[in-house]
């Protein structure tokens, strides 16, 4: 009986460990800036067009203030804010410039799916952006990894 329980406990422990490891793996953030002393995640989820300009301005100003090597920035777009990462977005030039300076862009797959239903086809996303399963969970992972969340 105890042996059986012991085996089950071991299996349970192994599963938990695997699960935790998986969670830990999900929270692992790949960055090209290992020496960055500041880590920022910028959220855009607002339909207000002005917010698109604002979030890009904030990223740009942070790079200027700290230097691109010293700050790691990821912009996570979900909900109505995903329009920032539409391939046709008027800010695609600025996005390319920021990307070349190391700013990462994450696009929420849930939002892409939802918008695809309304449009009849998935919206074309800026190739600079990385698609993440959920924008909010991506932000949580980044916060867990020490990033400071800013929602301009």
């Amino acid at each position: 009986m105890y042996k059986l329980l012991g085996k089950r406990a071991l299996v349970l422990l192994a599963m938990l460990s695997f699960g935790l490891a998986s969670v830990g793996h999900a929270a692992e953030i790949k960055t090209d800036k290992p020496f960055a002393t500041k880590k920022i995640v910028l959220q855009i989820s607002d339909p207000n067009p002005f917010k698109q300009t604002l979030v890009l301005n904030v990223a740009s100003n942070l790079l200027k203030a700290y230097g691109s090597e010293n700050i790691d920035i990821e912009i996570v777009a979900f909900g109505p804010g995903l329009r920032l990462l539409f391939a046709e977005n008027v800010n695609k030039g600025r996005i390319a410039t920021l990307s070349s300076e190391g700013v990462r862009f994450a696009a929420c797959k849930n939002t892409i799916r939802g918008m695809g239903k309304k449009l009849g086809h998935p919206p074309a996303i800026n190739p600079t952006a990385v698609k993440v399963s959920a924008g909010v969970s991506r932000i949580m992972d980044l916060v867990d990894a020490g990033y400071i969340l800013i929602k301009p």
């Binding site: 339909p47 207000n48 067009p49 698109q52 329009r83 920032l84 046709e88 977005n89 008027v90 800010n91």
Partner: peptide, 17 residues
Amino acid sequence: AANWLMLQGTEKPGQAA
């Protein structure tokens, strides 16, 4: 959008209200 034709006849892609 940077001339009268475009300013009056189009909106900024992905950003218009």
